[in-house]
């Protein structure tokens, strides 16, 4: 009799636990797949509404293909005529982007970018809050002011990464860091920020919208050929996908 009661109690507990887990899983999954909403929490930092037709409307979804990625005007490293282009969506506050930068991107740069085989195009997916938006904004100005120092600045940003939206990471902090990098004219960067912030915000928002159209919902994400690679994948995996493209 006691055994039967135990069994019934267990079933009730198991069913309740199951229900809680399913509800929580659905909640977290749905939250994770709507990164756009994150920026809606920071309306002052999101692109001001563009005048009609000033920002190209993004299609709802795009088939993954590097040929369809907007490359013109975007920050990049490597030979402009490189046979393979890799599009890289990232957020300066994302810890996995930092990991990817240190473990994978540095090897791609050493082994493929420097040899002129690969061009890496940097696309913003600034979805982690105010510090992400501030970093993306300054990155646009740095690219325009000193394109040859962009990657050095980009690496310095990841070296300074701390916790999301706390401590280091305001625009003033980032400008102070920018001053320490030789070859970047800080006055020009500040002037660009003063005059072109609105345009930069639109470009940042367009990068993210484009990524979302390809199915990107988090960072880091890359498009290599017709493959969308999500997450901080090891160099060995990315290297093989690049090699397949080089053989084409």
């Amino acid at each position: 009799m006691e055994n039967k009661n135990n069994s019934t109690s267990f079933q009730v507990i198991a069913i309740l636990l199951t229900a809680v887990i399913i509800i929580a899983t659905v909640y977290f999954a749905s939250r994770r797949h709507r990164p756009q909403q994150t920026t809606e929490n920071y309306p002052s930092l999101v692109a001001t509404k563009a005048a009609p037709n000033s920002t190209p409307a993004q299609p709802k979804s795009l088939a993954v293909n590097i040929a369809k990625v907007k490359i013109t005007g975007e920050p990049f490293i490597g030979n402009p005529q490189a046979p393979v282009t890799v599009a890289f969506w990232f957020d300066y506050q994302c810890p996995f982007c930092k990991r990817f930068e240190e473990n994978t991107m540095s090897s791609i740069v050493s082994n493929y970018v420097k040899s002129g085989e690969v061009k890496v195009v940097f696309k913003d997916f600034a979805f982690l809050g105010p510090d992400s938006q501030a970093a993306a904004l300054v990155s646009k100005a740095v690219w325009e002011a000193a394109p040859s120092k962009f990657y050095l600045w980009h690496q310095a940003m990841y070296n300074k990464q701390d916790r999301e939206n706390s401590g280091w990471g305001s625009q003033a902090d980032i400008l102070a860091l920018t001053k320490t990098i030789p070859g970047i004219n800080i006055n020009k960067v500040e002037q660009l920020l003063a005059t072109k912030s609105s345009q930069y915000r639109q470009e940042i928002a367009a990068d993210k919208a484009e990524g979302s159209a390809f199915g990107i919902n988090g960072t880091p994400s890359l498009i290599i050929g017709r493959q969308l690679v999500i997450g901080a994948q090891p160099y060995s995996a990315i290297k093989q996908l690049i090699d397949l493209q080089l053989k084409k």
């Binding site: 473990n103 994978t104 901080a232 994948q233 090891p234 995996a237 093989q240 996908l241």
Partner: peptide, 17 residues
């Protein structure tokens, strides 16, 4: 060989991702 080695290399993301 790539059909085998690429999926295997993605397993390495257990330590990076």
């Amino acid at each position: 060989i790539s059909k085998i080695s690429i999926p295997l290399s993605f397993l390495g993301s257990i330590s990076t991702n």
